[in-house]
Design a binder for these strands. Structure first.
Lengths: 191, 191
DNA sequence: CCCGCTTATGCAACTAGTTGCATAAAGGTG
DNA sequence: CACCTTTATGCAACTAGTTGCATAAGCGGG
């Protein structure tokens, strides 16, 4: 149950309309909590119904008309409560690792090329994060809030660094693997 | 759509009953693809209905009776197809990073202690992985399959290493942060 | 002024994962 | 043997996220 809290955080940083939020989720916030516009609109409705946010008054509130929201006191309190509450880290689910384990059973055919592609994507993401770091956190920008936000970005940078390095390692392993001449992969029993 | 493929992989490694699978998902497989027993039973039913696996013949197939499954040819083919197919890495969702970003707006109250707890948990997980590495991948065990499986474990080790280091960094930042004397966190507008 | 494109909001149906509980057999204990 | 716990399987309802599409206003040509 984190989407509402992601939205509350975003709205506290800056009151926005649904579409503006969507744009922000495609950039900064989405780097660690992605959401589609449909999720966002639905959740905005719920948050408004629950009295945590409200639509800023507008001249002509009609369909196709921008509607900006701001956070109410109850919303801020809820976000503070949620942030402070103890939460267990949830077990991870990573498709790439699963595919690699499957490849150990059915063969690596086809996987190699896709991992190379992933290496490219993670490399690009890493560059993008580094760019943001240069832009948003020059030396000296180190108030309490800057430090916390920098910490979040740092996690993104270090994670992408991990992935690029791990994928490089995996790719070099693939290259030194013997050709899978059919039968190389012991045909774990199928009927 | 990865749970069925996780199950196919597990069953190819070793035919098992639902409960045995559940146990294995609590250990090795669950380290990168977790699943509850309800998910597993449901999916076993679907896979059987789809002709990808079949129940091994049993004397008395009754409720409360172990029922083991094995993978059929179609199941193996499907797993090979899925493994080789190109897949985009999906955007991540990490609650901890989200909480940290929220804390930059509503204050760090309470978060510190929970991050310390997470540091402990990740540290323990890291130790467990290292233990497995010592046990399952002694020097010399480096056939193609061992190499691939070791690669997966390596990812787990490196990820937990990242988290412990990042959390250590975060915790030290928290300690050097000024006391949040109410108002330290600019009260981003609430109505 | 009608056509198509962009901006903006939203519903409905679907898929995946979670939570809570039910059922039944097996095996031990008083 | 009546009761309790453990092993093993499973259904039903719920929550969260995804996909596909609908609606409507504004705006710029031809």
């Amino acid at each position: 149950m984190s989407l509402p809290h992601a939205i509350l955080t975003a709205l506290l940083e800056k009151p926005s309309s649904g579409l503006e939020l969507t744009r922000r989720f495609d950039r900064s916030i989405g780097y660690f909590w992605s959401a589609t516009h449909q999720q966002i609109y639905r959740e905005l409705g719920r948050l408004e119904a629950g009295g945590l946010i409200r639509a800023l008054p507008s001249e002509h509130p009609a369909r196709g008309q921008k509607k900006a929201y701001e956070v109410l006191r109850a919303g801020r309190d809820e976000l503070a409560r949620w942030t402070a509450a103890s939460q267990d880290p949830k077990p991870m689910r990573d498709v790439t690792l699963l595919r690699l384990r499957a490849a150990a059973v059915v063969g690596t055919e086809g996987l190699h090329a896709d991992l190379r592609r992933h290496r490219e994507l993670h490399g690009r993401q890493l560059e993008e994060y580094r760019e943001i770091e240069r832009r948003d956190f020059p030396p000296g920008k180190d108030g309490p809030q800057d430090r916390l936000r920098h910490l979040v970005l740092r996690a993104g940078i270090d994670l992408e660094t991990f992935w690029t390095q791990w994928l490089d390692h995996a790719l070099s392993e693939f290259e030194s693997l013997p050709e899978p001449d059919e039968g190389e992969w012991p045909g774990a029993r199928t009927a």
